[in-house]
């Protein structure tokens, strides 16, 4: 009795295994398994799909992007609320890495280390990466933050309940709680400007053209050209956020 039961269960096991393997194969044919895609993949459609390029070689760390951002978007002037800021990286010859961002760079930078001890130093402008698979959107319990049809991550100020989940979730530290409105606030890529066909404030005020704003679908546009001509990286690619902020000349030290 027990022997017989064992036999059928083996056959059953093999059959079940075959069915499972077959359905997995069929499943992959039907809908290709969407594995790790580092950069954001554009969805189908014909709306623009905005992205950002930043050339670290061109950035002179004047902080005008951070300042114009605050002025354009009424960000509180206190030195801990930023939608856009600049960091100064200094890599000493002994290998230590120092990151500074006094008031987001608005008042300028100083270099304390003498020149002969510096191995490498550069500025990194930071802002929202406008991820296509953004963690901040995924954690919002009420649907108050979302990716717009043109690929901009926005906050619905009327709907946000100020629970701060998204601030915790953003791996790039790009969100803060607006102290007066008590809602989450972040870079909107100057949605009110780009919808009128003007560049976001930080792009327009950059004196050296270190920032490139453009439509990733426009294959002859400035951003796609920038991506073609430079070796660009995104921040924290291993998190698979689908970031659309591409840096040229990004060093491995940048977090």
């Amino acid at each position: 009795m027990s022997e017989k039961k064992d036999k059928t269960s083996r056959r059953g096991f093999l059959r079940a295994g075959l069915v499972l393997a077959g359905s997995v194969v069929a499943g992959t044919v039907l809908k290709p398994f969407n594995g790790v895609v580092v950069a954001g993949e554009e969805p189908k459609g014909d709306t623009p799909w905005y992205g950002i390029g930043i050339d670290i070689e061109k950035c002179i760390g004047c902080g005008k992007c951070a300042k114009s951002c605050k002025l354009e978007n009424n960000v509180p002037m206190e030195p801990f609320f930023f939608r856009s800021w600049v960091e100064q990286y200094t890599i000493a010859k002994d290998g230590s890495v120092k990151v500074e961002s006094p008031n987001g760079g608005i008042d300028g930078f100083k270099q304390e280390l003498p020149d002969d001890q510096i191995f490498k130093s550069f500025f990194v402008p930071k802002m929202c990466n406008h991820c296509s698979k953004s963690p901040c959107v995924q954690v919002c319990p009420v649907g108050a933050t979302y990716v717009s049809p043109d690929g901009v991550v926005l906050v619905d100020e009327k709907y946000c309940i100020g629970c701060r989940y998204c601030i915790q979730a953003c791996p790039y530290g790009c969100r803060y709680l607006h102290p007066a409105k008590q809602v989450a606030d972040k870079c909107s890529l100057c949605y009110h400007r780009i919808k009128k066909g003007i560049q976001p404030a930080c792009f327009e005020m950059c004196p050296t053209g270190a920032r490139v704003f453009g439509n990733l679908r426009d294959k002859s546009g400035p951003l796609v050209k920038f991506l073609r001509d430079h070796n660009c990286l995104v921040l924290k690619p291993h998190l698979n956020t689908g970031s659309k902020l591409y840096y040229n000349a990004l060093s491995g030290e940048v977090r």
Binding site: E72, S148, L154, S188, Y191, R193, A201, E204, M205
Partner: peptide, 8 residues
């Protein structure tokens, strides 16, 4: 979001 006022 698109209706916010401009400054620059």
């Amino acid at each position: 979001n698109a209706a916010k006022p401009l400054q620059f």
